[in-house]
C-alpha cells in the first residue's frame, strides 16, 4: 500500500511541475464545461419540449464530468504502458515477481487519481463561482453524495479494467496504436462523454444503458444530482459490479495468455 501511496505522490508532484500543462488542462476543462452548459441552456430555451433531465442535473453532470475527467477518460490511456507494448519492453515486466495485471491496474488507478486530485479542486471552484444558471448545485441529498462517491469508485474500476483489456488486445496485434484509437473512439458516445445518456432517444437508450460503457461515468454523474435515484439506482450499481467483475476476468485471462505467449515466443 505504501508503495502505491508514494507512486501517487510522485505523480502528483510531477503533475505540479508542468505548470503550463496543469493550467492548460484546467482552462480547457473549465471552458469546455461552461460552453457545454450554455449549449444545453440555449437548447432548453429554444424549445418547449420537456428535457429528459432537469437543467440543474445537466449542469452538475457537465461540471463533474470535467472535474473528474481524468478518472473516466478512456481516451488518454497510460502512455508508458503503451510504449512498453509497442517497443517490446513488456517482456521485462513479465519477468518481475509480481502479477502484471495487478501492477498495471494499480498504476493506472494511481495516476488517474493523482491527476483527478490535482484538477478537480480548481474546476469545481470555477463551477461554484460562475453565475446562477451555470453554477453547480450541491448534491441532492447526503445519500446521493454517498452514492456518488461509491459509484465513482466502481465507475473508475470499470474504466480501468476496460483500458486493461485494450492494452492486452493491443499486445496481440501488430498495430497497437490503431487499435487504441479504434477501441477508445467507439466508447465516447456510449459512455455518455458526448451527451448525457438520457438525451439519447429510445429504444437506443435502453440498449446502451445495459452495455458496460454505461457503467462508467454515466452512473456517478447522475447519482450526484439525484437524476438517478431510488428504483433505478440499485440495478445500476449492481450492473457496475457485474461489468467490473466480467471485464477484470477477461483482462486477467488475456494477461495470462500474453504471458504464455511471451514465454513461448520470446515476445
Amino acid at each position: 500500500m505504501k508503495k502505491y501511496l508514494s507512486f501517487f505522490r510522485v505523480r502528483f508532484s510531477t503533475g505540479l511541475q508542468y505548470r503550463m500543462a496543469a493550467v492548460t488542462a484546467l482552462t480547457t476543462q473549465f471552458f469546455w464545461g461552461l460552453l457545454e452548459c450554455i449549449i444545453f441552456k440555449v437548447l432548453m430555451e429554444s424549445n418547449s419540449v420537456a428535457m429528459p433531465m432537469s437543467y440543474s442535473a445537466v449542469v452538475s453532470y457537465v461540471w463533474l464530468k470535467e472535474a473528474f475527467f481524468a478518472l473516466f477518460n478512456t481516451w488518454a490511456a497510460d502512455n508508458e504502458i503503451f510504449g512498453m507494448i509497442v517497443d517490446g519492453g513488456i517482456a521485462y515486466e513479465f519477468c518481475r515477481p509480481v502479477s502484471v495485471y495487478t501492477m498495471w491496474f494499480s498504476r493506472s488507478v494511481g495516476s488517474r487519481m493523482a491527476e483527478a486530485a490535482l484538477r478537480c479542486g480548481p474546476v469545481l471552484l470555477g463551477a461554484l463561482l460562475v453565475p446562477a444558471p451555470y453554477k453547480i448545485s450541491p448534491p441532492s441529498s447526503l445519500f446521493a453524495f454517498f452514492m456518488f462517491l461509491l459509484t465513482m469508485i466502481l465507475a473508475m474500476g470499470v474504466t480501468v479494467s476496460f483500458c486493461m483489456i485494450v492494452y492486452m488486445l493491443c499486445f496481440f496485434t501488430i498495430s497497437p496504436v490503431g487499435w487504441r484509437v479504434l477501441l477508445t473512439g467507439a466508447v465516447e458516445l456510449l459512455s455518455g462523454a458526448v451527451i448525457p445518456l438520457p438525451f439519447i432517444p429510445q429504444p437506443y437508450r435502453q440498449v446502451i444503458e445495459l452495455l458496460p460503457f454505461a457503467s462508467m461515468q454515466n452512473i456517478p454523474l447522475r447519482a450526484y444530482s439525484g437524476d438517478l435515484t431510488g428504483d433505478h439506482l440499485l440495478p445500476a450499481v449492481l450492473l457496475q459490479v457485474f461489468w467490473f467483475v466480467v471485464m477484470t476476468t477477461i483482462g486477467v485471462l488475456l494477461c495470462k495468455r500474453a504471458e504464455r505467449r511471451i514465454v513461448i515466443q520470446g515476445g
Partner: peptide, 15 residues
C-alpha cells in the same frame, strides 16, 4: 450522432 440525438428531442436551437 450527438447532434442527431439532441435534435431528435429538440427542433431548433436559437433559430
Amino acid at each position: 450522432l450527438g447532434i442527431l440525438f439532441l435534435f431528435s428531442g429538440f427542433s431548433t436551437i436559437r433559430e
